[in-house]
Design a protein around this nucleic acid. Structure first.
Lengths: 205, 205
DNA sequence: GGTATTCTCAAACGATCGTTTGATACCTAC
DNA sequence: GTAGGTATCAAACGATCGTTTGAGAATACC
């Protein structure tokens, strides 16, 4: 395998992320993709086996990083007496927003939202396998800080927090970054709004 | 045009809604679609002109109904002194959840979520054209009931409410209807959770 | 240097896509 | 009854899809 500058595999992965985000998994063809990456058409099947496996790899690369950051942030505060709800929400929300910012990752959140929307069962299982333990750890910490909520009630509220987060990440909504605000500042504003909104929604009586 | 039982146009629209929800706009082919509808392949292009125009019609049929219900519910309460935040939220949320329930409409919300996710600009413009005035009316009423919030702050919070609603409607989340709960009951539970969560998130200091 | 392995490439494969065509049936109106 | 629009149908169109092939270039190993 050559490692000059960027390997063929990495060039494919980067181009795939951009084009999957822009046109969807079925909408982005391997011909567009390999052309954008500057590699041969056959390279995808050679290096990844199939287009589906390429999709999986695009996800794995980003989600491993996101999970790692979330759990690291949670580990720093979990179980400690001075930890607040805002702290846990920050550990949950900020890595996701950061992921949607670093490099070409802005687009990855659209890919993720798309994956959710496409409701593909294998992809859902993949996400659940890779995310299940993360959600479980966060739920446990939320439960510790919100002892007045039943399990059922807590699940509902966490679900709605996830919805608001997904929505904000994908840049669907009315709120768009203004040209006089840097992306970093906008991300911090988004995080602040999400955390306050979610904290109120989670902890109300 | 024949009107025996269901017209060809209507059969196509119904089948399209199901298949677009299940496989996406690009993923659902006209051959699957016309086969499911029990009509000839050429019927789509004959009655709608193209696949894209069919997609538009699928949206228009449902969104006109949703807009109408939302505005009617809002009109009953807007501007009145005894109206509460929960009332406005109910007018915003319940028609959406009802839409995702009547007939084969369960799937339409997945179609809508998909449309958001696909980030298609023409579709976004279409949605904005058809939804703009609805959102404006709701925003005005929210502003009346939440006078302590700046315009900017209010926009943010309404955006997050929309995110939670979209998420809940599409059935993405962890919360799934249990088999011992009827769909109607589940919808009412969802509405109740959404309204309380959103009210807390909207009105917190 | 010669062999083996890894990688790249142009070309082609079969399948499926949205759309168009032209013939045929159906129904209305005169 | 017959002309004329309306609707349906099987068949084919060109384009594009993911994938495979086989030959050649590049690289690694001995």
């Amino acid at each position: 395998m050559q490692t000059s500058q960027q390997s063929t595999k990495e060039r494919i992965l980067s181009a795939a992320e951009v084009l999957f985000a822009r046109h969807g998994f079925e909408g982005a063809s391997l011909r567009q993709l390999t052309a954008a990456a500057g590699v041969n058409l056959a390279a995808v099947n050679y290096h990844f086996g199939s287009k589906d496996r390429l999709v999986e790899e695009v996800f794995r690369r980003r989600l491993d990083e996101l999970n790692s950051r979330r759990l690291k942030a949670l580990a720093r505060i979990a179980g400690q007496p001075e930890t607040t709800l805002d702290d846990v929400l920050a550990a949950f929300i900020k890595p996701a927003l950061e992921l949607s910012h670093d490099g070409s990752g802005t687009l990855f959140m659209r890919v993720l939202a798309r994956a959710f929307a496409e409701h593909d069962d294998t992809l859902r299982k993949f996400l659940s396998d890779n995310y299940g333990h993360v959600m479980r750890q966060f739920t446990a910490e939320f439960a510790r800080l919100l002892p007045h909520l039943s399990k059922e009630e807590l699940y509902w509220r966490i679900d709605l927090v996830s919805g608001a987060l997904t929505h904000a990440m994908s840049g669907f909504g009315m709120i768009q970054r203004k040209s006089d605000v840097t992306e970093t500042v906008h991300r911090e504003q988004t995080a602040a709004h999400l955390i306050r909104f979610s904290a109120a929604g989670l902890s109300h009586p």
